[in-house]
Amino acid sequence: MKPKNYLVTNFGVMRISVCALVSLLLLGGLSVAQAQQNNPLASDPRAAGAGGVIFRAQCATCHGADAKGIASIEAPDLTLIWTQDGNTDGSVFATIQNGIPGSIMPAHGFPDTEIWMLVSYLRSIATGGATRPFTGDADTGQRLFNANCAGCHRVGGAGSALGPNLAGVTARRSQDSIASSIREPSASIGRGYKPISFLSVNQGRVQGVIKSEDAFSIQIMDSNQQLRGFMKSELSQMNREPNSLMPSFSIAELSDSELNDILGFLDQQR
C-alpha cells in the first residue's frame, strides 16, 4: 500500500505544480499574445525592404518570387492574406513562427525582428485595396449591378455563381484593377473561370467554365450554372476559348460614371 500512497501523493503534488505552470503559461502567453498583435516595425519604412530580402531567401521557393503562390504545391497567394481568413499582423507573425502543422509550411526559428520584417513586407505587397475612396452612388450602382452583373456574379447571398463572388472585392483590388476587369475581362481569366465549349455525345453542345480536369474527365460549371462532369472520351470539338464568358463593357455600354457607381455599391457590400 505504501508505494501506491506515495504515488498518489506524488501525483497530487505534480498536478498542483502542473496547474500552476499552466496558469503561468496562460498569463505569460496572454501578455506575449497581446504584445504580438501589433507590428513594432509598422512605422519603420526600412522594414518592408529588409523583409523582402528575407522573403526571397526563405519563402520564395514555395510561395513564388512574386509571393503569388505555386498552385502545384498548394502554396497560397500571400498577396491576398490580408483580405482572407481575418488575418492580423499578429496572426501572420504566428503562422510564420509556428508554421501550419500537418502542412508543408514549417515553423521558422527566425528572431522576432526578422519575422516582423516579413510581416511588413507582406503588408507592402498586399494586392489592391482601395487607393482612394469610392465615390460612386451605391443606389444607382446596385440598380446597374442587378441589371448587368448579377446574372453571373453575386455579392453576399444575392446573384449568380458563374463568375466570382464580388463581396469584398474592393478590399482586395484597386479601382483601376477592377475597372480593367470590367472593360477587358479576357485579359486575365482566373483559375476556375476559364471558358470551354464542346459537343457531348449524349448532351449536345455545352459551354461553361473549367473547374477541374484530369487526363480522362473534365468538371465544369455550364452556362446555366449547373456543375457537370464529363468523360473526355464522350466529347468532341473541345474548344478552350481565349475569351472570358464575361462580356466586355465599353464606355458606350457602361460609362465611367456608371462604372464608379457599381464600385460604390460593391464597396458598400464589404
Binding site: R56, A57, T61, G64, S72
Partner: peptide, 25 residues
C-alpha cells in the same frame, strides 16, 4: 533570378528566386 544569399547554418540558401509560369506547364 540569381541573388547572393546570406549563409547561415540551418538556413536555406537557394541564392535567388525563380518565377514559374503557372499558366504554362
Amino acid at each position: 533570378v540569381p541573388e547572393e544569399p546570406q549563409l547561415a547554418p540551418g538556413q536555406a540558401s537557394f541564392g535567388g528566386v525563380v518565377f514559374i509560369d503557372n499558366e504554362q506547364g
